[in-house]
Amino acid sequence: GEDLPLPPGWSVDWTMRGRKYYIDHNTNTTHWSHPLESGPSSG
């Protein structure tokens, strides 16, 4: 998808195989999909 801006506290990194993933430092979790690309989340 597009390179959307990341929310505060997020960063992007790549695996050893070159796969892009996103790090949420607020909750110390990692995600394969961009936080703003996922569907609407409630709460």
Rank of each mutant, 00 (worst) to 15 (best):
D24R: 01
L4D: 10
V12Y: 09
P5Y: 08
S41L: 13
N28E: 07
K20A: 05
R17A: 15
D24P: 00
I23F: 08
L6Q: 02
T27N: 08
H25S: 07
G9F: 06
L36F: 09
H25L: 07
L4S: 09
P8K: 08
T27E: 03
S38M: 14
Y22P: 00
T30P: 04
D3T: 10
L36E: 06
H25P: 02
I23P: 00
P8Q: 08
G39Y: 11
P8M: 08
M16Q: 15
T30A: 10
I23E: 02
D24I: 01
G18Q: 03
M16H: 15
Y21H: 03
L4G: 08
L36T: 06
L4M: 09
G1W: 11
P7R: 01
E37H: 11
T30S: 09
S38Q: 13
P8I: 08
L36V: 06
D13W: 10
P40N: 13
G1T: 13
W32Y: 07
D24F: 02
M16V: 15
P7S: 01
D24E: 02
W14D: 04
G9S: 03
P8V: 07
P35W: 03
G9Q: 03
H31V: 04
M16Y: 14
T27H: 05
H31T: 07
D24M: 01
P8E: 09
H34T: 03
W10G: 00
N26K: 07
V12P: 04
Y21N: 00
S38H: 14
D24G: 00
P35D: 04
R19E: 15
R17M: 15
T15G: 04
G39T: 12
S11A: 09
D13P: 00
D13M: 13
G18P: 02
S11R: 05
S41G: 14
W14G: 03
G1D: 13
T15N: 08
T27K: 05
S38N: 11
S11M: 06
H25W: 10
P35T: 03
T27L: 04
N28P: 00
T30I: 15
N26Q: 06
E37Q: 13
P5E: 10
M16N: 15
N26C: 10
S41H: 12
T15A: 02
T29P: 00
T29A: 04
G18L: 04
S11E: 09
E2N: 11
P7E: 03
S42M: 14
T29H: 04
S33E: 11
S33H: 15
Y21F: 10
P5I: 07
V12K: 05
S42R: 10
G43L: 12
T15K: 01
M16S: 15
P7N: 00
L6Y: 03
L6G: 00
P8R: 06
P35M: 01
N26P: 01
N26H: 07
T29Y: 02
L4A: 09
W32H: 04
P35S: 03
M16C: 14
P7W: 02
H31K: 04
